[in-house]
Design a binder for these strands. Sequence first.
DNA 1: ATTATTCTCAACCGATTGGTTGAATGTATA
DNA 2: TATACATTCAACCAATCGGTTGAGAATAAT
Lengths: 122, 122
Amino acid sequence: MRTDTIPEEQLDRVFHALSDRTRRALVRNLSEAQGTVTALAEPFDMSLNAVSKHLKVLEGAGLIERHNSGRTSVCSLNTASLETAQVWLDQYTEFWNEMLDSFGDHMKRKTDSAAIPPKARK
Amino acid sequence: MRTDTIPEEQLDRVFHALSDRTRRALVRNLSEAQGTVTALAEPFDMSLNAVSKHLKVLEGAGLIERHNSGRTSVCSLNTASLETAQVWLDQYTEFWNEMLDSFGDHMKRKTDSAAIPPKARK
DNA sequence: ATTATTCTCAACCGATTGGTTGAATGTATA
DNA sequence: TATACATTCAACCAATCGGTTGAGAATAAT
């Protein structure tokens, strides 16, 4: 379990990339099979150029990787970057914490449960 | 564990809300203690109006709730909406799936591991 | 060699974003 | 009542966003 701080810039990019439903659909499709830009663009009612730009945003966020082979560019999902967002969210929800507790695993518990809340941060 | 589909509009709003670092800082601060608009705005080098607008975005995404008391508006975090994003991410990462497997819990496994990937969706 | 395919770059467009300022509203307090 | 405080509304601004079109570069096929 990662506990170090994730750079704000990366979180900006990852959450922004996932805030568009076309890009989320691309992530979903890429989770099932990798594909070329043309193949990935096929299901959408927009130009190839638009999808190409969406893929660039996903790449900028580290959510996909490209493997250029000849004139085609094969994209594949990078789940590690998805976990960046996941880890951030896990800090503020009890969902998985409770599940871990139910298995008797307390490694995620804070040792000091201070009554005084930490200072607000900018 | 939820398996139904989350409305795209809500995912749009939640991920967009979290794509701004000021709003993420507000979420973090609210995870430690609820606060008024003025109190929440204090750590930031921007106008009160700007923070008020950020809180409105968070509220629109269902990430915070308000309790109006007199002339002050007390904001508090709604972790259920954070879980909306969390559940979406969990569909595409192996992180927690592997952890569940390690506990011998296979409820997240697909019964049919088809070799043919499902059709791409728009 | 010519033609077709895959993909990106550049310019452009309207809409939205994150910020500002100033006025307005409602609520405490002196 | 008059005044200070907490918050929002409205207008504005530059920057970014998601889309378009058209041109161009590189590769594959005929």
